[in-house]
């Protein structure tokens, strides 16, 4: 068996693959954050809580209404997006003219409240959510056992990321959105309803978080902390990629997943820290992030 840096090659390939899977979650979540920050200038600290709500929505749909995984994948993001839209209309929209910090504090407070409510209602140890039958089982890749479900997560995440990037960069709607961030008044003068577009964008970003939550539900324990565990890493991803850069968020998400996966092999104790070390280095060398415009 060939060794690479003292680690058997098959094990290393396995870890790369697993890193890519975690990277899919980072990419999907940081994408939502980047969309919201890029177009609304809001640092959405509630993103982790909305990811968690997505997972809980899937659980509730199944436990209370008998609605399975595939419908949940469609319905949960819609439900959570609606709650996001309500939040945006009632609270967040009042902060657009103020400093970023106010939006950050508001959404952080909202995240704490949402998590507290779920913790009180459902406890902290989590709820069971089974992998759908069609995606259960595993492929034997020779060098490792690859659960079908994880493969599905990577594919789903890639498709979502690509679609979002295409919509924002290549369609007329995306062009409106980008124009509105540059000069909202001018775009409004052309007859585009900018406030409604901004609201829907926030809803879309939140929906992305919720899809991530539904995808995560069968793998992780569905519990109120599941979002806050991820959100810090995801923020680091956005900062490394460059605040507001869609492509940056996607690429950085996948890359960091892989880096973290490799750290888990070579120095497991440091795997929770490595992303922040990278963030510090990137901020020193390129304060605007890898893909950000200074």
């Amino acid at each position: 068996m060939d060794d690479i840096f003292g680690i058997p090659a098959p094990l290393l390939f396995g870890q790369l693959l697993l890193g890519l899977i975690n990277g899919a979650f980072y990419a999907m979540l940081s994408l939502g954050l980047a969309v919201i920050f890029g177009l609304l200038n809001i640092v959405n600290m509630a993103h982790g809580a909305q990811f968690m709500m997505g997972a809980f929505a899937a659980w509730m749909l199944l436990a209370w209404f008998g609605i399975g995984y595939w419908w949940a994948l469609l319905l949960a993001p819609i439900i959570i997006a609606i709650t996001g839209i309500i939040l945006e209309r009632l609270l967040i929209s009042r902060l657009y003219k103020l400093d970023h910090l106010y939006g950050l504090l508001l959404t952080f407070g909202l995240a704490l409240i949402i998590e507290g409510v779920f913790r009180n209602e459902f406890g902290s140890s989590g709820l069971p959510y089974r992998i759908p039958d069609a995606l259960s089982g595993a492929w034997d890749l020779g060098f490792m056992f690859m659960p079908v479900y994880r493969g599905w997560v990577v594919i789903a995440a890639l498709v979502l990321c690509l679609a979002t990037w295409l919509i924002i960069e290549k369609t007329r709607l995306g062009a409106y959105l980008r124009a509105a961030t540059e000069n909202a008044a001018l775009v409004q003068a052309f007859g585009v309803n900018v406030p409604r577009m901004v609201t829907l964008t926030y809803g879309f970003g939140v929906a992305l978080a919720a899809v991530g939550g539904v995808l995560a539900a069968p793998i992780y324990s569905v519990n109120p902390q599941m979002g806050s565990n991820l959100i810090i890493v995801v923020f680091a991803t956005v900062v490394i990629g460059g605040m507001g850069s869609i492509l940056g968020a996607i690429l950085t998400g996948f890359t960091l997943g892989v880096v973290e996966g490799l750290t888990k092999v070579f120095w497991p104790e440091a795997s929770a820290t490595v992303i922040f070390v990278i963030m510090a280095i990137v901020l020193l060398a390129r304060p605007a992030g890898l893909f950000g415009r200074a």
Partner: peptide, 15 residues
């Protein structure tokens, strides 16, 4: 494994 803050154990399980 780092505590707290580890949610994905697949990498450790494969090791």
């Amino acid at each position: 494994t780092p505590f707290p803050g580890t949610t994905d154990f697949s990498s450790f399980l494969v090791q």
